[in-house]
Every structure is written in structure tokens, then in C-alpha cells.
Simulated scan of single mutants.
Amino acid sequence: MADTILGGGLGFYVMHRIETSYKVRRLPSHQPTERLRRYEAHLLTKEKEAQQLQDEGCREDQAQLLSDS
């Protein structure tokens, strides 16, 4: 039973080391992936759209206030 537990722990450690080694070689930390770049561009687009909607809402509020007076 102890052999099974030790073997499982050793197997987990070895697989963890292999996985992290692979990730370091495949995805250097100083170069963002294409997927990350697309996601960041998408977030910027959404932020700009939200800002435009907010600006339009402010203009409508001002126009309504001017027409009421």
C-alpha cells in the first residue's frame, strides 16, 4: 500500500515537471500568444463601445435638459 502511495506521488511529480517544462518551451513568457492578443483586442473594443454608449447617453441627457428649460 505504501508503494502505491509513493508511486502515485512520484508519478504526479514527474508528470508535473514534464508539463511545466513543455509549457516553458512552447510558450515563452515574454511573448504573448495570438489568443491572448485577440482577447486583449476584444476587451479594448468592448471598452470603447461602452464609452461611446456612455457618451451618447450623456449627450441625450443634456439635450433633454436643454429642451425642458
Rank of each mutant, 00 (worst) to 15 (best):
M1C: 07
M1K: 12
M1D: 08
M1Y: 08
A2M: 12
D3E: 09
T4W: 00
T4G: 00
I5V: 13
L6Q: 09
L6P: 00
L6G: 00
G7C: 00
G7Y: 03
G8E: 13
G8P: 01
G9M: 04
G9C: 01
G9L: 04
G9V: 04
G9K: 05
L10W: 00
L10G: 03
L10E: 01
F12T: 07
F12E: 02
Y13E: 03
Y13R: 06
V14P: 09
M15H: 04
M15T: 15
H16D: 08
I18M: 06
I18N: 04
I18W: 03
I18Q: 07
E19C: 05
T20Q: 13
S21D: 13
S21E: 13
Y22P: 04
Y22C: 04
Y22R: 03
K23W: 08
K23D: 07
V24G: 08
R25E: 12
R25I: 07
R26D: 09
R26S: 11
R26M: 12
L27W: 12
P28D: 12
S29I: 15
H30N: 15
Q31T: 15
Q31L: 15
T33N: 06
T33W: 07
T33V: 05
R35W: 12
R35S: 05
R37E: 12
R37L: 11
R38T: 03
A41D: 10
A41Q: 14
A41N: 13
H42G: 06
H42P: 00
H42W: 11
H42N: 11
L43Y: 02
L43K: 05
L44I: 04
T45G: 00
K46L: 14
K46Y: 08
K46R: 15
K46C: 09
K48Y: 01
E49P: 01
A50W: 11
A50G: 04
Q52Y: 05
L53H: 07
L53E: 09
Q54I: 08
D55A: 13
D55W: 07
R59C: 00
R59Y: 00
E60G: 05
D61H: 06
A63F: 01
L65I: 14
L65E: 10
L66R: 15
S67H: 04
S67R: 14
D68P: 06
D68E: 14
D68G: 03
S69F: 11
S69A: 12
